[in-house]
Amino acid sequence: MIDESTVNHVARLARLRLTPDEQQVMREELSGILEHIDAIRAMDLDGVEPTTHVIAVENVLRPDVPRPGLSRDDALREAADVVDGSFGVPRMD
């Protein structure tokens, strides 16, 4: 069972605000899922290399040639807050 402080720490890392009820449910559900997942912690994996890609491809590179991008209007058109051609964000503290 993962504890409350772990749930809170992970929620903060993920920038998810959970209500107290959600925290409790999350704790129970994650604990339940982790019990199933624990199967892989018991496996003998000594000497096994990790797989990041199932395809054996390397050196996929792009020539340093400019491509047309977005107009500023298109870049900003879905933004919640536009300030003089820039994206507005709330103050940080």
Binding site: V65, P66, G69, L70, R72, A75, L76
Partner: peptide, 27 residues
């Protein structure tokens, strides 16, 4: 000082008006 960005084809610039060198990738 390459011509384009690390992971997309937007041209590098210094001093241009904000958000005039962007594309879906770098946004």
């Amino acid at each position: 000082s390459t011509r384009t960005k690390m992971f997309c084809g937007c041209e590098l610039s210094f001093g241009d008006p904000p958000n005039t060198h962007t594309c879906p990738v770098c946004l």
